[in-house]
């Protein structure tokens, strides 16, 4: 398999841009990012694209390929029909810096808002003890490579521009990884309800669908967090218990 393929790549910056047509030779096993690099070296030296590991581990090369939010390094050219034009656009939910590169700094601001781990004291011998079955579920969340494809896809952010009220799926799983951390002693439930906006997610699971790490974002992180909020604020028995025995973390 070695053939000339057609590409259309969005070129421009914050003041505007357009799809530009390119052609390049594609060989066996190539991914979309390889083709972009070839075009860069051959005919578009200044075309901006983020990338690092080229192995699906760093989450840098997020973009929208033929309408789907994807990592360009893990999208094989032979996933597409031989005569199909490959369209590459920057992620829609974030402001464009240049070409395929967007300004994702909003995500870093969300992360900084989150109360970090507050670990309990060590055991007497200086170790922490956690059972594997108790960390399995947070290890799933910690597979996140921060590609922000879920943030880009989430309707609350993409279509309703509620980014000032909702931290987005990526940080819901970070919150879940902290709330379910066996060593953690902080309480984030009030913030999850108010500041981080758990109620805004309406469980369409689009974030889960685009996650390149296949993390069950909605089922395993967001829904359990929503349940914890409900238990705290809307469950009358829990409410009375809390009034009587003071708040306890679950």
């Amino acid at each position: 398999m070695s053939e000339v393929r057609e590409f259309k790549i969005w070129r421009g910056n914050s003041s505007g841009g357009a799809m530009v047509a390119y052609q390049t030779q594609v060989d066996e096993g190539m991914v979309v990012l390889d083709a972009i690099h070839k075009i860069q070296a051959e005919s578009a030296g200044d075309m901006a694209v983020r990338w690092n590991c080229k192995a699906g581990k760093c989450g840098s090369c997020s973009m929208e390929i033929n309408g789907m939010p994807k990592l360009a390094c893990m999208t094989r050219m032979n996933d597409y029909q031989p005569n199909e034009v490959i369209n590459c656009r920057p992620m829609k939910s974030f402001p464009v810096i240049k070409d395929l590169v967007t300004d994702v700094s909003w995500n870093y601001q969300q992360n900084k808002k989150i109360t970090p781990l507050k670990p309990k004291a060590r055991d007497k011998d200086g170790n922490y003890r956690m059972m594997q079955e108790d960390v399995d579920r947070i290890q799933e969340f910690r597979k996140c490579i921060e590609c922000y494809l879920c943030q880009n896809t989430c309707h609350v952010i993409r279509d309703h521009q509620q980014e000032s009220r909702f931290v987005g799926p990526r940080f819901m799983i970070r919150l879940a990884s902290l709330e379910m951390h066996p060593l953690d002693t902080a309480d984030r439930i009030p913030a999850i309800k108010n500041e981080y906006g758990s109620g805004l997610c309406n469980i369409t699971k689009c974030c889960t669908a685009v996650c390149p790490e296949h993390i069950q974002i909605t089922d395993n992180a967001i829904i359990p967090l929503k349940e914890r909020v409900v238990d705290r604020y809307y469950d009358p028995i829990m409410w009375i218990k809390r009034k009587l025995f003071s708040a306890k973390k679950n």
């Binding site: 922490y128 003890r129 059972m131 594997q132 960390v135």
Partner: peptide, 20 residues
């Protein structure tokens, strides 16, 4: 390594719950 665990790293565990 222990310090990293205290800062939030979740290593795989041994049967006794220690860092594997």
């Amino acid at each position: 390594v222990r310090e990293l665990e205290e800062w939030g790293a979740v290593f795989d565990r041994t049967k006794d719950g220690l860092i594997n």
